[in-house]
Amino acid sequence: MALSILELAEDEARQRGATAIRAIAVRLGEMSGVVRDALEFSFEVARNGTLAGAASLEIEVVPLATRCPACGDVPNTLHDLCLLCPDCGGRVEIAAGRELEIRYVDLEC
């Protein structure tokens, strides 16, 4: 994941003729499958030798949010995920928390 983030940021930097990457901001859903600490650690290792060698990684964690199409918001936690609506028994959708995306890259030009 860290390598994918760096690859995309470096592509952006090269396309714009940047000399360095100052910061990379990512949105990380609670249910993205990626753990914040692990990503921070691997980013620190993987950034060496890239244009992001001194870049910071800014992580915005997006909390899990689930919603029943019929009954509205359903409280949920990742520790006890239940996608069956407690009121009507219908399927509950994941409205937020699956994000794994780059928000922005700060480039030195």
């Binding site: 994918s4 690859e7 952006e12 100052r22 990512v26 995306e101 928000r103 480039l107 030009c109």
Partner: peptide
């Protein structure tokens, strides 16, 4: 001496894999 340009893109991290 240097400008910082913010490029906002909302790119999925796994876009290449996708």
């Amino acid at each position: 001496t240097s400008n910082v340009e913010r490029v906002a893109n909302a790119t999925p991290v796994l876009v290449r894999n996708q």
